[in-house]
């Protein structure tokens, strides 16, 4: 299997901050690799290096066999970039944005208009084609941004947090588009803060933290390491906390984490059936709960499990 992207020992410092601190990354052709990490983990810096927008301080990277520093032009003819912030011109309409990019890619006037119409159709933006991009909803903007990155039929696509700030409906739309592209053989490097997104789209996941790769693997491998789901209980009365902690501990075989301030007890579970068992046992003991839920692991928990420390956001 040949590699579309290969990066070795990428380093990028901004003064004291090590945005990238020796990153290795391999993306096989036609696959989706998800880069998962909190804000400031170095995800965007890595994408900018691989998209020839930023020179690494050390290390090297090739895209489609071309060095990103020595031969950026060859790399640029292969890639499409969808930035973390939609990088279309807000004043221009959907059509104008795409025609401009097609013209810059040396399409003829008529060819550019045809390509724009084709992409607008494909992304279901035909009705809004003549409107300024600033009037688009978040999801439409992101779709236009995706369309813009596809004008030149790239074989490698960078999606830098493509769904950050989108509502679930718009997020699903973007996911559907990405799946379609992958089905057509496009290689995708996806950065995201959401485990679920990486899980949905990526063949393998690379976890970044403070400019380093802290874990790599298929989504199911990583999830196993994180420990599946979590059971949360908050008894109505704090006096019941000891009893509930014992019940939950007996049930899961793990000592539950306990927050005395909020009265929340948390324990990892592998079997969802335990939820109903817990309800019955609490009922038998005559204890009521304000909160009782089965949750998927959050990014915080992935991080806690993979790095042994909290993400910066959850510390605050």
């Amino acid at each position: 299997m040949s590699l579309a992207i290969r990066a070795e020992g990428l380093v990028k410092h901004y003064g004291e901050t090590k945005a990238l601190d020796g990153v290795d990354l391999e993306v096989p052709e036609g696959k989706v690799v998800g880069v998962l990490g909190p804000n400031g983990a170095g995800k965007t810096t890595a994408v900018r290096v691989l998209a020839t927008l930023l020179r690494p301080d050390a290390g090297h990277a090739t895209v489609g066999g071309h060095d990103v520093v020595k031969n950026p032009r060859a790399v640029r003819s292969l890639i499409g970039l969808t930035g973390q912030y939609a990088s279309v011109d807000e004043d221009l309409s959907g059509t104008e944005n795409l025609v401009l990019l097609a013209r810059l890619l040396d399409h003829s006037r008529a060819g550019a208009r045809a390509r724009a119409a084709e992409l607008l159709e494909q992304f279901e933006l035909t009705d809004a084609a003549g409107r300024a991009a600033k009037t688009y909803s978040g999801g439409m903007r992101r779709r236009l941004d995706l369309a813009a990155s596809l004008v030149g039929n790239p074989s490698v696509l960078y999606l830098d947090e493509p769904t950050t700030g989108l509502d679930p409906h718009a997020r699903n739309e973007v996911w559907a588009v990405v799946r379609k592209l992958v089905a057509n053989g496009v290689t995708v490097l996806l950065t995201t803060q959401y485990l679920e997104e990486a899980d949905q789209l990526a063949d393998t996941i690379t976890v970044f933290d403070h400019g380093r790769v802290v874990a790599e693997g298929r989504p199911d491998e990583l999830k196993r390491r994180v420990g599946g789901q979590t059971l949360q209980v908050r008894p109505t009365s704090l006096r019941d906390l000891d009893v509930v902690q014992r019940i939950l501990g007996d049930l899961t075989g793990v000592r539950p984490t306990r927050d005395d301030d909020t009265g929340l007890l948390t324990a990892p579970v592998n079997d969802p059936v335990l939820l109903s068992t817990l309800v019955r046992k609490l009922d038998d003991a005559g204890i009521t709960a304000d909160e009782l839920a089965l949750r998927l692991p959050s990014l915080d928990e992935v991080f806690l499990a993979l790095t042994g420390k909290q993400t910066e956001g959850s510390l605050a």
């Binding site: 998209a51 499409g80 970039l81 930035g83 912030y85 990088s87 890619l105 813009a148």
Partner: peptide
Amino acid sequence: SKGVFDRFRSMPI
């Protein structure tokens, strides 16, 4: 600052 340039720069122009 709006990222429009990033798009141009990621293209072979």
